[in-house]
Simulated scan of single mutants.
Amino acid sequence: MSWFSLLKQEIRALFTNQAAVFTVFGGVIIYSLLYPVPYSQQTPRELSVAIVDQDGSQTSRMFTRMMDATPEITVTRELPTVDSAAELIATGVIDGVVSIPEHFYRDLLMGKSPVVSVAGDASFFLVYGTVVTGVVNAGKDLGAKVKVAKSVLRNTPLALASKQYTPFDLNLTPVYNPTMGYGNYAIPGVFMLILQQTLMLASALIGCQQMVSKGQSSAYWNTSNPLLVVLTRSLVIVAIYAIMAMYYLGACLEANGINRLSHPIELASVVLPFLFASSGLGILLGYLFKRAESLSLAILVSSMPMLFVSGFIWPTAALPVWLQGLAQIIPSTAVIPAVLQLNQMGATPADEIHYVVQLLLQAISYLSLAALLLFGAQRMFRNEHKHITTSQ
């Protein structure tokens, strides 16, 4: 069989496999539209909090107004005790409660630091952290106002006191994530994992289906060079996913307001080896599994572990050494930091050369192993077919 005939057969095998077609086109597009939706607001704002004011002074009421003025929180009610807020937090009526202690005003006048308590559901760490941030910012403003007032009482000019209440000025400039949003942080990396998992599943489903129907003696995958079959299948699906990768790293990031710093050719130098490595791993898995249902479940269940060992959701240094080593056989472990550094951080291709080499080695290894498995399957089928022919 000529290579062009083999190419036509592989294209037909892909587009006649309904599960693979839905994975490639339906899955990739649906994920691109649905996944960014929860992060469209980037960071929580105007979270509802309750106030327990045990001091009842003018200063405590001013502190309450300062908290209400922050962009992070909104004071929606006052409660007599902290315990009365537990049910409201559990039912989602409020996101947190702030307790202003008794003698709040007196302690400030005496130069002491009163302890303001913040309570909330810490299982939603982003919500809880935003509530705490709003309270801290309001506390800093109130502390500055008290310091300035004391300096004025000591005959310090107001303009000078306003500049001297703190020994330094803090100028925070977010790097790589200008909005400090969770979307800018999570979406680019997860997009690469989505590409990997859907690509692996699509390429694996084709091989799995063919292994189940290997009794067809005239089937092209039983009669063609196994290495050529594997390379052609990988080429077909990588050609499609190259377009999907451009869509994910171009239009999708642009639509979600995520910065893009690298040139498309620089990204291609990393993404193409990644696509070949992922397709090779998928083809290999397709030859190892006997049932498409088990194959799909294994790939889908592995998504979350692969995400956490990739190093951007959970720091790699916090993982066990053996798990760090095991993670290096997964293409997403190399491509996620490479793409983030290129596209979001402005790194150069020379900085990512070790990731490219790792992905190329993975691609060669997985495609070679897949070809060996197909060769073994062809040989086993020929022996079985020869035995059946002899028996007849």
Rank of each mutant, 00 (worst) to 15 (best):
L319T: 11
L372V: 15
I336L: 04
L267I: 11
L158A: 12
L373Q: 12
L359P: 01
E87C: 02
F22W: 14
P174V: 15
T223V: 15
L34K: 07
R233H: 10
A277T: 08
E78N: 14
S2Q: 08
D83Q: 14
Y355W: 11
L372H: 04
S224G: 08
Y105G: 00
M304G: 00
G346R: 12
P167C: 08
Q362D: 03
T390P: 00
V24S: 01
A144C: 03
Y31E: 02
G134W: 07
H387G: 00
S218E: 13
K214C: 10
F124W: 07
A119C: 01
I94Q: 03
S294V: 05
N256M: 12
S203N: 14
F63Y: 15
G286I: 02
G189R: 05
I240L: 14
N177Y: 11
L160W: 04
A268T: 04
T133R: 14
A69G: 12
F15Q: 05
T316R: 06
Q58S: 12
S40L: 08
I100G: 02
K8T: 08
R77W: 00
L361A: 14
F168K: 06
V301S: 05
I206C: 04
E384P: 00
A202M: 09
Q392K: 10
L205S: 06
T43M: 08
N177S: 09
G120Y: 07
T43E: 09
A119T: 13
E46D: 14
A239N: 01
S302K: 05
Q209P: 01
A161I: 14
L47W: 03
S2V: 03
E78Q: 14
L285E: 01
F191D: 03
G96K: 11
Q42T: 11
Y241C: 06
A338Q: 07
M200D: 01
S117Q: 14
S5A: 12
F375T: 12
L359Q: 03
L261T: 09
P80V: 11
V356K: 07
P331D: 06
A242V: 10
N171I: 03
S278T: 15
C252Y: 00
F312W: 11
S84Q: 15
P71A: 06
N171S: 13
A370G: 13
G280C: 06
A363W: 12
L373C: 10
G181T: 04
Y182N: 02
Q328M: 14
N184K: 04
T166V: 11
I283M: 13
S151M: 15
P44Y: 12
L34C: 11
T348F: 04
F124T: 03
A50Q: 04
M380H: 11
Q196P: 05
L109K: 10
K290L: 10
Q324D: 04
V132S: 02
S303I: 15
T232D: 02
M304D: 02
S203I: 11
I240G: 01
V321S: 08
L142C: 10
L272Y: 07
L307V: 11
T316P: 00
M192D: 02
A350P: 01
I330N: 02
H103K: 15
K386N: 07
M180I: 14
R382C: 06
M66N: 05
S32Y: 01
Q41A: 12
N177E: 07
L172Y: 13
G376E: 10
P71S: 08
E78F: 10
R291S: 14
F312N: 05
L297S: 09
V335T: 08
L34G: 00
P273N: 09
N17W: 09
L275C: 07
A251I: 15
P114R: 08
F22V: 15
S48Y: 05
